[in-house]
Design a binder for these strands. Structure first.
Lengths: 207, 207
DNA sequence: ATATCCATACAGACATGAATGTAAAAAACG
DNA sequence: CGTTTTTTACATTCATGTCTGTATGGATAT
């Protein structure tokens, strides 16, 4: 085979990324060679080296297909600003929905549980970046909630933020270790709802 | 060099494990060769292959030096059985104290953030095993707490268990990504205390 | 006590295989 | 025909496992 049309070249690029996802997920990043990825896509290493500089570059491209900042997720839901706790809930829900898509699930699982640093890639740094992004957003919402008197008395907004962020993070990690064990959407929403209920100022207090 | 005494042989074994910890932590497991480990310990690969079957065996031995089931931690604290929530707190505290020791910190960080499967080692499975162990223990305590009427009304013990486990897990993961950023003991205890306060039935309800 | 002998605890060299990156050839498009 | 896409072939590097060599420790016999 050789050159088809421009669109078909793009298709092989995508095919390579798809293959990378699958093989990385099955074998881990370090244990998979570019040869394996190419073969899995029905191509050869030559194609890989044409489209990507090297393994790290391929990896980055794979990640770029699923990036989604928390704020964007929230924006998608069209949540209003007057109820920060509900906004958090919606953002959370949106995240979980995304995670149920195979592509997002696979790539996140790879990033978190199936790779260590290589080349100029540091998965920990990427995770930290994503976590920090999420933490900042959550922090803002809880600060608002606190100002509006929506939080339980004695619960500092920073603590509430870290609690929820830890729950989110822990949930992700645990679920990604074995995504078929349960539905993250159902369990996740149950946990957020329970936690938000715990953190919300109750009517008796508010009166 | 050649054969020293039996005690000295044991010392080199430990030295190799120490070296493995450090190099694994710095470079990741996949990227470090047995040669690097041996050199870092001032020895050669011959020593490594004498004491260990291969890389996976060495890795397992490294893990074995820090294993500690949650129940054992709780036992160490000598907590009484009449206050399950306090028992959970103490177990948590004990875990965090352990984590502040460099050895535990390093090994856990390696297991969680610096290795993917290789040989017959599946770090995810090991994590799942540890998490499950912890989950079972927590589940028992919260079931007791529920029976004793210590939990907030409407809070199912299973949900409480999963919440706390997620918090623990999330906290570990986040901190291990950058252990020098903050004290896990301080922040961790603040979070558990806050969470336990939220989950405890308040006096008004109890009356 | 000391000489002998074997198992132990390493070091060093070697063979193998696998993955990488690159360069050159080949095939198909325009 | 020239350019773009892909294959094939090749050179290099590197980790692994194994094998051999060797000096010592310790047990046993004398």
């Amino acid at each position: 085979m050789a050159r088809r049309t421009k669109a078909e070249a793009e298709a092989t690029r995508e095919a390579l990324l798809d293959a990378a996802e699958e093989v990385f997920f099955d074998n881990g990043v370090a244990r998979t060679s570019l040869e394996q990825i190419a073969r899995h896509a029905g191509l050869t290493r030559g194609a890989v080296y044409w489209h990507f500089k090297n393994k790290a570059d391929l990896f980055r491209a794979m990640l770029d297909r699923v990036r989604m900042p928390f704020e964007e997720l929230v924006a998608e839901t069209g949540a209003s600003h007057d109820s920060p706790l509900e906004t958090v809930r919606l953002g959370f829900q949106q995240s979980l929905l995304r995670l149920e898509q195979p592509r997002h699930r696979r790539v996140l699982a790879i990033l978190i549980h199936r790779c260590e640093f290589f080349g100029d890639i540091d998965p920990c740094a990427i995770q930290t970046e994503m976590a920090g992004e999420c933490l900042d957003a959550l922090g803002g919402y809880f600060a608002d909630a606190h100002r509006l008197g929506l939080l339980k008395q004695g619960l500092a907004p920073e603590v509430a933020t870290r609690l929820l962020q830890a729950i989110l993070s822990g949930l992700f990690h645990d679920w990604l270790r074995d995504p078929d064990a349960y539905s993250i959407y159902e369990r996740g929403m149950a946990l957020v709802d329970a936690q938000l209920a715990l953190m919300r100022r109750d009517e008796a207090e508010a009166a």
